[in-house]
């Protein structure tokens, strides 16, 4: 990657800093309103309805938005709960489904270095990382002064988490009531939106990674439903890294 801090998306409106860290927090909240919240709302409605079908209690399904905050892991949790799985298989499945948070945090948090004091707060902020919040900070973070990045990230994340919790409760309440076509549309919105987000990655190493990861993901998932996606990320990402850095940068 030629410029590691390059935002994954072309910045559409000019991105300006906020007047203060407090305003950055409010700005983060407002940036969450719109497509990010709508997409999250739709997929959390889907999760709420799955939770109900599996017999998972409503209160704990909503709580899982706050404590897990990673939809594929939450879905694995309720589905294994439904078949009476014990704690260890549930932990392993959730770990496989949410393993992306390791590379996501490593690639995102250098943006916060120097702006989070004491650094121990980073261990709390890491809990907010999700595909939505990762994209938001990767995009807006580099244009902000160091002391505004964590407040912006926290504001954006809290809006998303709150939206997810409310939508999970709604999805639980409406399970089986919504027309099938509407339910299908709701669960399709998130993958199609993020596909566009990642199809728009222009920077060379990132674009190679997206293409190779997307090709390997479904294939490896057929071999291992639990670890196929993380393995595709490691293999596709490594190939993209080598191609970008070693092959094309030579000479």
């Amino acid at each position: 990657m030629s410029n590691p801090a390059a935002p994954p998306l072309p910045p559409e409106p000019p991105l300006r800093p906020f007047p203060s860290p407090a305003r950055a927090f409010v700005g983060g909240l407002w940036d969450g309103v719109g497509l990010p919240a709508a997409v999250l709302f739709a997929s959390a409605i889907g999760f709420g309805s799955i939770a109900r079908e599996t017999g998972f209690p409503a209160s704990l399904a909503v709580l899982s938005v706050f404590t897990v905050w990673g939809m594929p892991g939450q879905i694995a949790m309720v589905e294994l709960f439904a078949i009476g799985a014990s704690v260890l298989p549930i932990a392993i499945a959730a770990a496989g489904a949410n393993a992306r948070f390791l590379p996501m945090t490593v690639s995102l948090f250098p943006l916060l270095k120097g702006g989070v004091r004491p650094w121990a707060w980073a261990y709390l902020l890491a809990h907010f990382v999700s595909i939505n919040t990762w994209v938001a900070l990767m995009r807006r973070g580099p244009s902000l002064p160091l002391d505004q990045r964590a407040p912006y990230f926290a504001g954006f994340s809290l809006l998303c988490i709150g939206t997810g919790a409310v939508a999970t409760a709604i999805g639980f309440a409406l399970a089986g009531v919504l027309p099938r076509t509407l339910t299908l549309g709701l669960v399709y919105l998130s993958p199609v939106y993020f596909l566009m987000v990642f199809a728009g990655v222009r920077e060379r190493g990132g674009a190679f990674s997206v293409v190779l990861g997307a090709s390997a993901g479904p294939l490896l998932h057929l071999l291992s439903p639990e670890w196929g996606v993380p393995a595709a990320g490691v293999i596709g990402g490594t190939l993209a890294f080598l191609l970008d850095r070693k092959v094309l940068n030579r000479g």
């Binding site: 990861g213 490896l220 490594t238």
Partner: peptide
Amino acid sequence: FEWFSCVAYAMLAALIARIILLPAGA
């Protein structure tokens, strides 16, 4: 750092492709 960034992009793309091509739920 660059390697971790590549892996993050690839893993997210792998997940999205998996959800569209081999979905689990509804």
